[in-house]
């Protein structure tokens, strides 16, 4: 494989995630309404929103500095960077595969988070700072869970490079049912719920500022900035879904060779896998109520315990 091929496939991955991210948000939004026996919006609604926002003007508060203007780009930047590192469509490593591993991906996601929370304060409204504070709370509580999951993965696969984990992790396939694997999946799922701001941690469709976690940060963003923030956060969700399904849950069905047919097949498989995951998430969401703010610590504490158990199971595995 040449550098050009490898780079090209990497860009294809990026395009896949960037373009399809909104549709997954749309699907989630629709399905969430559907389980409540409502019709729900079109799955293409996010694209319409983006178009509308991009055509509006950008408004900043007078106190805002360049940070507030840069933050939306940073929010988009981190998931895009991570996309370059992980196996989205191919099971062989691409150009960016070794520019960072899963641990680095965690740090990369912090770029967007850092700038978004700083920018939330920069806008000058009190809600922004409040949301930033709460987001950081979820953020720092989630971090130990992530690292313990990585430990568990590392004990089994002896690597944190997603491409290699993907090949080593569920090998032989019977290991799918090993306790370490299952517990890691549970812990990571809980982590995704927290990181993407879903129930029971946060209510993405809530409208009460005092109860918001994620949304109150971006209350003062408008127009193209808001579009970028929205897009960026849906990309982040997709990146997490991809890691979950392609690396941890079911590392099968990816293109093994760089030809068009295999890639097309991979696109379809990955799309379906993510849909299955979304269905799972919706099911979880529909069955839970939102937690009070400081109960989130308990929720993530539970996730931590699950992760530790997974790690111990991984160590004890024959």
């Amino acid at each position: 494989m040449t550098i050009a091929q490898s780079l090209g496939l990497n860009i294809l991955q990026l395009v896949f995630v960037v373009l399809l991210a909104p549709v997954f948000s749309g699907i989630v939004a629709r399905w969430r309404e559907n389980v409540q026996f409502k019709r729900g919006p079109s799955i293409w609604q996010p694209y319409r929103d983006l178009r509308k926002l991009l055509s509006k003007e950008d408004r900043y508060s007078e106190s805002a500095t360049w940070v507030a203007r840069f933050a939306p780009y940073a929010v988009c930047l981190s998931p895009m960077l991570v996309t370059l590192l992980i196996p989205v469509l191919t099971s062989f490593p691409l150009f960016g595969a070794f520019a960072g591993d899963m641990l680095a991906a965690g740090f990369i996601l912090a770029i967007g988070s850092f700038f978004l929370t700083v920018a939330a304060v920069d806008t000058g409204i009190p809600y922004g700072a409040m949301g930033a504070s709460r987001t950081r709370m979820v953020g720092f509580l989630a971090e130990p869970v992530l690292i313990v999951i990585l430990f568990a993965v590392s004990f089994v696969a002896n690597s944190t490079i997603p491409y290699i984990v993907q090949q080593q992790w569920v090998q032989p396939p019977a290991h799918f049912f090993s306790p370490a694997h299952v517990l890691v999946l549970v812990a990571f799922l809980m982590l995704i719920i927290a990181e993407t701001g879903r129930l029971p941690v946060d209510n993405p469709s809530g409208h009460f500022e005092l109860a918001m976690v994620d949304e109150s940060k971006v209350l003062d963003f408008s127009g193209p900035s808001y579009a970028l923030v929205k897009w960026g956060s849906s990309m982040k969700s997709v990146v997490l879904y991809v890691i979950f399904v392609n690396v941890l849950l079911a590392p099968w069905g990816l293109a093994g060779t760089p030809n068009a047919l295999a890639l097309g097949e991979a696109i379809a498989v990955v799309f379906v896998k993510i849909l299955v995951l979304l269905a799972l998430l919706i099911a979880v969401e529909a069955s839970l109520a939102k937690l009070r703010l400081f109960r989130i610590a308990e929720y993530l504490g539970a996730a931590f315990v699950v992760a530790v158990t997974a790690m111990i199971a991984a160590v004890l595995a024959p």
Binding site: V118, D122, S133, R136, F140, L141, P144, V308
Partner: peptide, 28 residues
């Protein structure tokens, strides 16, 4: 693992800490 978890928590709290301090000092 425990040390790693503590350090991860530390790293995340460091982000919180410096978000707070940079933002509250220089912004708004």
């Amino acid at each position: 693992v425990l040390a790693g978890a503590l350090l991860a928590l530390t790293a995340a709290l460091a982000v919180t800490c410096f978000v707070k301090n940079y933002a509250m000092t220089f912004l708004s």
